[in-house]
Amino acid sequence: MSKPTPRRAALSLAPALALAALAAPALAQSWPSQPIRLVVPFAPGGTTDLIARLVATPLGESLGQPVVVENRPGAGATLGSLQVAQSPPDGHVLVLSSIASHAIAPALYSNVRYDALTDFTHVALLSLNPSVIVAHPRLGPADMADLARRHREDGRGLDMASSGAGSSNHLLIVRLGQILGKELNHIPFRGAGPAMTAVIGGQVPLMSDSLPSAAAHIRQGSVRALATSGEARHPAFPEVPTLREAGFDLVTSSWFGLSAPARLPASVTDRLSREVLAVLARPEVQSRFAEFGGTPGTLDPAGFTQFVASELARWEPVVRESGAKPD
C-alpha cells in the first residue's frame, strides 16, 4: 500500500506540465477561463497578504474572472512558492513573490527546491516598501549620527532587534554593521510585533522594521524614526531622513511581486502585466499603498525579471556574511 506523497504527486505532474506547455497557445486565447488562484506563501493578516488582497479584487474585475487569494504559509515562504513553481503554466495559478521567497530564501536555505529565476515567469513588481530604523524615544539614540557615536563608544556595541533571523530587516542590520565597521548585536524575534513590543518596553533600544508595520508606532511617538532605507524620503514621513542622507550609503527595500510558473505563454504574461499595471495606477490603490508606506511598482515582465536577478545576486553575499546560514 503506498500513499501518494507530495513529492510523488509533483512527479506525476511532470507529464501534465509538458502537455500544458504544448497546449499553451490554445489556452492563451481563452485565458482566463476559470477563477485564478493567487497563492500567498504567508499567513493571512501580514503585509504580503494585505498587498495580495488589495490587488486581487480589482485585478479579478478587469480580467473577468475572480482572483482568489490562497494562503499557503511555511518554510520562509518557500512552500507556497514551490507549489506554484510545480503548477501548470496556464495562467490560473499565480504566486505573490517577495524578497523573502525569491531573493533571501534561495541563499539562506539549502533545501529550497525551486530556482527563483528559471522556475518562474516574473510578471510584475507590485510594491516596494522601505525599511525604517526606529529607536526607543528615551533610551535609544537621537539620530543616526548619535547611533554611530554610541555604537563606537560602547565596547560591546549596540543591541538592535529585527523580526527574525534571515529577514530583510536582519540583513539591513548586517549591512549597517559593515558600514559602521563593527557588528551590531542583533536580537532576532518571532515577527515584527514582539520585536516592536520589546523596543517600546525599553528591553532593546533599536530596531530595523518595515515601514508599514512601524508606521503607527512612529506617528504615535512610542518609537522614534531615525532613518528610512528608500532612494528618497518617504512622502508619509517627510521629516525622516534617508540612510544615505544620514551618511550611510545603503538603499534597500523589501518588495512584493506577481509571478507565475515558468513558460507562461507570452500573450498571458503581457495581458496580466498590462492589467496589473493598470490596477496599480488607480488612485484608490495608490492611496492604500501609500498608507502602508509602500510604492506601487511600474516594472514590465522583463524589467521585473532583471530586478529579481539583481536582488538574488545582491543578497547572497550578505546572507553569507550574516552568519544566518543554516545547514
Binding site: G76, A165, P188, R190, P326, D327
Partner: peptide, 9 residues
C-alpha cells in the same frame, strides 16, 4: 524547526 536566533534548521 527553524531556530529563531540563527535561522538554522
Amino acid at each position: 524547526g527553524t531556530d529563531v536566533q540563527t535561522g538554522q534548521q
